[in-house]
Design a protein around this nucleic acid. Structure first.
Length: 467
DNA sequence: CCGCTCTGCTTGCCTATCTC
DNA sequence: GAGATAGGCAAGCAGAGCGG
């Protein structure tokens, strides 16, 4: 049935997939450890096995982990490596899957010293599917890191992983953050469905963080939620533990208006003590399961009419909303539990409303406002007219550093009577305030020197803005 | 229908290193 | 020095299926 005669091995169609089998040097029949979606992939796999038998590099597929004599082969050495590493359960599980499913079946029996760049490239281009770029990247990255260890230990002369540009995987969709009006509709839902989503949308909590909240973490008097742990899971096991990054442990302010709803929800919870989970699972003791939260979220996004948003997009919404209030980057980092300003930037998105406001403000500014921006230099802050052609990348960093955000046309100027040196509180500037702050309009003594292409791009953008 | 578990796979976060 | 790229790890998404 769908089987074909071949000089080496056989390929058989099974439920829409292709199964490869062969007789090894041990005269025993062996199956490929996984099915192939394309016949050509199965043929390539058999070709690899055939070559390894011809070169007397083939060994029977290894089932038992960690046998000392396996350490010469890639599979044995890789298993040994992963066993030695300190990994979280989830990562260990994932690495094991990549190794056993994608790496070991094709390359596992090969001795480390016989692994060559050409063979790795063939494996990368034939076994790893380009349709799954993330999995492809991860499998390759794992193999490269294992072979780097082998190189460090002197087991191989040089790491044979030389494929270039493996790490480029980009976000494939734009996120339109939820608006305050949409988030407020969550209060119409049953509390167990609406409140977890509300904490994500207003406070920027991730799914695992929401599920890991305990009653003691919610201080409704202070209006603060304390993020101290998160829930993860592996096959058949739920893990409740500290945040992966130190910055993830944080206190986040709760907007005042949902607090009465939270208080009412907490008061109605069964008595399980302050260590009890805020959103318990069906047994009342363990944390709400990931799937239960997803179910609740499915209901919630239907009610607010935003079925395009994922749960994690709620974190982006919180960051974007906070950003639009003019919150400094340091506050946004603390709120979101990020360690870098770059991550804050990544979480900022323009909303429809903010885009409209930006366009309006630009329209008002045209003809009577010369745009300026401020930057830091070693001696403090200098002021650079946009027309000096400062690099776009510098502007983006400035925006993060100075609290100027996507979706707003606000510029920072000294507060009333204040200096522009960072020691004084600052307000978002109106066009009038900008005009009345002559210090901001002066040309910097040491203007940035951008590259030609970026300078031309900046100039073309500015030409449309300037009078 | 609801609430849940299991599982395979994808996406995101953060930091280090390289390149221009 | 800034931006780009790579590396390592963690978390999220969603289909299948089960039981009440």
């Amino acid at each position: 049935m769908g089987q074909e005669g071949r000089s080496f091995g056989s390929i058989e169609r099974r439920s829409g997939y292709f199964r490869a089998r062969y007789v090894g040097a041990d005269r025993q029949r062996h199956d490929a450890p996984h099915l192939f979606s394309e016949r050509i992939d199965a043929e390539h796999w058999l070709g690899e096995v055939h070559r390894s038998i011809s070169r007397e590099e083939w060994r029977p597929p290894v089932k038992v982990k960690g046998r000392p004599d396996d350490l010469d082969t890639l599979a044995g050495y890789a298993r040994h490596c992963l066993a030695e590493r300190e990994l979280t359960p989830r990562t260990r599980e994932e690495y094991g899957r990549l190794l056993e499913k994608l790496i070991a079946p094709t390359l596992g029996a090969i001795q480390l010293k016989h692994l060559e760049p050409d063979r790795i490239r063939r494996w990368y281009s034939t076994v790893l599917s380009a349709d799954r770029p993330v999995q492809r990247k991860h499998a390759y990255s794992l193999l490269r890191s294992i072979l780097r260890e082998a190189e460090d230990e002197g087991l191989i002369d040089r790491n044979p992983c030389r494929v270039r540009n493996v790490g480029k995987v980009r976000r494939t969709r734009d996120i339109e953050p939820a608006t305050p009006a949409e988030l407020n509709k969550l209060l119409d839902l049953p509390p167990k469905q609406g409140l977890p989503v509300l904490l994500a949308g207003w406070c920027g909590l991730r799914s695992g963080e929401v599920r890991g909240l305990r009653r003691r973490d919610l201080d409704l008097t202070e209006g603060v939620v304390r993020v101290r742990q998160a829930v993860t899971r592996t096959k058949g096991q739920v893990h409740v533990g500290a945040q992966k990054a130190a910055a993830g442990t944080r206190d986040v302010g709760i907007p005042p208006h949902p607090i009465p709803y939270l208080a009412k929800y907490v008061a109605a919870l069964p008595m399980t003590g302050r260590d009890g989970f805020l959103f318990p699972g069906g047994d009342g003791v363990s944390p709400m399961s990931e799937k239960a939260l997803r179910y609740a979220y499915g209901k919630a996004r239907k009610v607010i009419g935003r079925e395009d948003l994922t749960f994690h997009d709620m974190c982006h919404s919180a960051a974007s909303l906070a950003g639009m209030t003019g919150a400094p980057t340091a506050e946004l980092k603390a709120m979101m539990g990020h360690a870098t300003a770059g991550m804050v930037e990544r979480y900022q998105h323009a909303t429809r409303a903010s885009r409209s406001r930006l366009a309006e403000n630009m329209s008002k500014a045209r003809g009577d406002l010369r745009p300026v921006c401020a930057t830091r230099s070693s001696g403090g802050r200098s002021h650079i007219p946009w027309s000096s052609g400062v690099r776009i990348g510098s502007l983006l960093r400035l925006k993060a550093a100075e609290g100027v955000h996507h979706g707003t046309a606000a510029l920072r100027v000294p507060g009333p009577g204040g200096r522009a040196d960072g020691d004084q509180p600052e307000d978002p500037a109106s066009p009038d305030r900008v005009r009345s702050a002559p210090g901001l309009l002066q040309r910097t003594a040491h203007p940035a020197r951008p590259s030609g292409g970026r300078r031309r791009h900046a100039a073309s953008v500015l030409a449309q803005l300037s009078p």
